[in-house]
Design a protein around this nucleic acid. Structure first.
Lengths: 231, 231
DNA sequence: GGGATCGGCGAGACTAAGTATCGTCACAAA
DNA sequence: TTTGTGACGATACTTAGTCTCGCCGATCCC
């Protein structure tokens, strides 16, 4: 078989050694030695020791950003749901790595803080996107902040549940349910006087679907639902 | 006048030097020297270089914890509001320090991450408290997570606005308004029967699903929800 | 009053993360 | 063959953070 890339060898060595000997007890020299490269090379691939645990993080953030940018105001909620789904799906697709990393992050404070800082970067993306979406409406900044925080919290809640369960089920359904909660909560903020039936339809698609296709589909599904609405 | 405590002298020296020469450029030796003590003494008072910027943080966290613990289920919402107010009031009472720290934290990534990690600890307190409060109700964990995130986000939004304005007004009013937003949003989630609102439909499907299948799924979920609706 | 005790401080050594520099070697282009 | 280029290794350096030890002044006990 082909030799894995140095980057992968380093990440693999890091996780293994952290598992076996603990995070603080493992030096960068150890990691490099196990990967068969020099210390210099380690720092060429990862900016820091912590970085070796979160290798695919920047790419995921870029995916979320791309998904949000590829949407108009009309499809904002769909874009948000989709973006969150992308993140969770990434964890699910790399379940073993996610689970190992989770058990590690849970008991190493430095890694926990690092993880939290990463989550904040996602939240920032969502906040800016939602802020632009709501721009001009009352309390746009506040609502963007609240909604972004809630969306991220919903994701984390579902993700943690899935991780604690050892990845034993498909968390995408629970995620949609949780996002439905969020959207329902904030829908009432948009029209506080509307004591009526705030029907919410959350439709999620694969990330490869074009915004137009998403909109068409939403319109197609929502139309009958709305017309059936009483009142 | 009496000589300030070593702890205060160190914190003062740290902020001053960070301001003058930058964070990375300032070594712990510099701070200790300016405070007139040894490097050893610095680390006796602060666990790390970053800690010198957030000296009163643990105490504040303890105050929040105490306020939350000193409440029953009946007064849970009041306790939450009170606890958040304690935090914001602390910033306001030390306005000059808060403002200097803000301009510093804003441009030093390491300090930003640290701040974010601190915020997460507050959020954890709120989450646990709200979780206990809601224990036994449907989706208690999820709602606790969402509400804690929203409460903290509301606080941060108000605080940042106040800091950006140079501390020019009293932010406690805006905070109450923001908290009102949060409570209003989640009140609807608490009693889904109230006013017959809060219906949430979440439909998930892959982009490869046929329109007919999707429509059927949506009708299946939407039909009962609509027909069951009173009024 | 005199000696023992104890807590705060300074001094210095040590580990390890992260940075910077330079030399080397393989490989490709001309 | 020569020359350039890029990845890697080696090494030295700075600095954060930990640890140990010795000093010294205050306090306490007799």
């Amino acid at each position: 078989m082909a030799t894995p890339s140095i980057s992968r060898r380093l990440a693999e060595a890091a996780v293994t050694l952290f598992d076996e000997n603990g995070y603080e007890e493992t030096t960068v020299d150890d990691i490099a030695a196990r990967a068969g490269v020099s210390r210099s090379t380690f720092f060429r691939y990862y900016r820091s020791k912590e970085d070796a645990i979160f290798p695919d993080h920047d790419a995921l953030l870029a995916q979320v950003d791309a998904r949000l940018r590829a949407s108009t105001s009309d499809t904002a909620l769909v874009a948000v749901s989709d973006a969150v789904r992308i993140v969770l799906a990434h964890y699910v697709e790399n379940a073993e790595v996610s689970l190992r990393r989770y058990s590690l992050v849970r008991r190493v404070p430095a890694l926990r803080d690092r993880e939290i800082a990463s989550v904040a970067r996602y939240q920032r993306l969502f906040r800016e996107f939602i802020g632009k979406w709501l721009a001009g409406t009352p309390d746009a900044d506040l609502r963007a902040e609240l909604m972004a925080a809630s969306v991220v919290a919903a994701h984390n809640q579902v993700l943690r549940g899935w991780l604690r369960a050892g990845g034993a089920y498909d968390p995408l359904g629970p995620l949609d349910r949780a996002l439905g909660y969020v959207i329902a909560a904030f829908r009432h903020l948009e029209r506080p006087e509307d004591g009526g039936d705030g029907q919410v339809l959350v439709a999620t698609f694969s990330s490869s679907a074009t915004p137009e296709a998403v909109m068409d589909a939403i319109r197609a599904q929502l139309g009958p639902a709305v017309t059936r609405k009483p009142r």
